[in-house]
Simulated scan of single mutants.
Amino acid sequence: MDRLAWGGRGVAHEANGRLLLLEAPLALFPGEVVEAKVVWKARHGEGRVTRWLTRDPRRTAAECPVAGTCGGCELWEAGRHAPDLKRQMVADLLRRQLGEAVPWDWHPAPSDARRHRIQLHWDGSALGYFRRHSHALVPVATCPAAAEPLSLAIPRLQEALAARILPTRPGRWELSTGTPAEEVLATDERGRTWRLEPDGWHRSDAPLAQRLGGLTLRHEPGAFFQVSPPWAAQAFRELLESWDVKGRTLYDLYGGVGLFSALLGKRFDRRVLVESGEAAVAWARRNLEALGLPSDCQVGDVGAWVPEGLGEPGDVVLLDPPRAGLEPALAERLCAARASTLVLVGCDGAAFCRDLKRLGPAWDLEKLAVLDLFPLTSHVECVALLARRP
């Protein structure tokens, strides 16, 4: 295998030179020799690694007993070298999409970063994660990628489901915890939530509280929030402060429950937050008011909400869109915005690079950073600072 590409794929070549992209349930190190089941396309092949013939000496034993079959993490066995492997993946993507000359900063995750929410599946008799590329269940009794209270709660959830104490219809369950990771909540597909007490599970309508370096944000269990909130808040805060992001009005688009507005705090005179979920907007209002940051929080589809000529000089537009990135029409309207600064956040590197190129006619890329907010996976968060072109 020659090198690592975006998404953790290994890049190799057949004897005749044809490109081969390999994926594996565990980390791949450049230089390893593997066997793979390959499907050949017109110009390249795509394969799934079935066996390692030579293993990189940097490999370490996986802490997870189902590392080779579970579809949740693909960087087990990389050990302390996982950040470097992820950096190689990102470098490959940015080089191909943006060119060699674009500088960027890499922010690896701390070794203690863990997930504060995990999604499990119950099939009527077993609880676990899906196998990679399949809906076949891999039963689990622990999850070392999750915060300890969540991992310890997995058998308790399994027992309650098996005993019919909780609804037993097959489906998805989310276990979540706040910050610090203490209480554990279980939410089913219908949005019903139970809190784990010493004597078992009890229905709960209470929100989760994320206490993040002097800020407290609350949100509904089961709703979207950062996977590893303590590390995400620290990384975003340090990055935005080092970039000196401030101004008159902050347009916090796809603003969720107010994380970015809260982190930027009084660096702005005024905040306008737009989010499509009514419950999220209600919590954003409460969160920002409690922090002394009253804001204009609106329920709306960002793609339809953004007008031509958004903002004025001195304003900042911050966007954290879904994984698919910006709609083409929205990117076009952003090119006509009057704000001075744009901050783009993206959790899919390929979509993020595409959006940067769509914004290129009107915005100059000044800073680019990649944050490892998803330890043990190939996923990252990309953040760009753009200045309005005169």
Rank of each mutant, 00 (worst) to 15 (best):
A126I: 02
G178K: 11
Q234R: 15
D188P: 00
R172E: 11
D199K: 13
L250P: 02
A206I: 12
T142M: 08
F224S: 13
L157T: 02
Y129E: 09
V140Y: 09
P155A: 08
T216N: 13
A146S: 07
D252Q: 10
E174P: 00
A163C: 03
H202Y: 03
D205E: 14
A209W: 08
E159D: 13
L150P: 03
K246V: 01
R192K: 07
T179W: 13
P198A: 08
L137I: 07
L250H: 01
R192V: 04
P144H: 14
A147T: 01
T179E: 14
P170H: 03
R248H: 06
L240K: 03
G200I: 06
A235S: 15
P198K: 07
P180I: 11
H202C: 11
G255E: 11
H202A: 14
Y254D: 09
T168H: 12
L175A: 02
T177V: 10
L250C: 03
H121Y: 14
W122S: 02
Y129I: 09
L127F: 02
D252C: 11
S176V: 14
R164A: 15
V138S: 00
L161E: 12
E174D: 01
G171H: 09
R192F: 04
S176R: 10
P229N: 12
Q119S: 15
T193P: 06
S134F: 08
I118W: 01
G213D: 13
R156W: 00
D252H: 09
E182Q: 15
A233I: 03
R132W: 07
Q210K: 03
G124R: 02
R156D: 05
R211C: 11
K246T: 04
T187E: 08
E241T: 05
P221W: 01
T179H: 13
L185I: 15
L127C: 07
R248T: 12
W173N: 06
R172C: 02
H121V: 05
T177F: 03
L215A: 09
L215Y: 12
H121E: 11
L150D: 04
W122D: 04
C143L: 10
A145K: 07
A186V: 05
L217W: 03
R156A: 13
I165S: 14
E182P: 00
A153S: 13
R190L: 15
P149A: 14
R190C: 06
T249A: 08
G247K: 09
V227N: 11
E241Q: 14
R237N: 09
A160I: 05
R169K: 13
L250I: 01
E148P: 12
A153F: 06
L196I: 09
A146N: 03
L208E: 03
P144C: 08
L208Y: 06
L161Q: 12
A186Q: 09
G178N: 10
L208P: 00
F225D: 08
R164M: 06
S151D: 03
T142K: 10
L175F: 00
L127Y: 00
S125Q: 14
H202R: 15
P230F: 07
P144D: 13
A163W: 01
L175G: 01
P230L: 10
V184W: 00
G128Q: 10
P229R: 12
F225V: 09
R211G: 00
T168C: 14
A223W: 08
F130I: 02
G213T: 05
E189N: 04
T177R: 12
R131M: 05
P139S: 10
T168K: 01
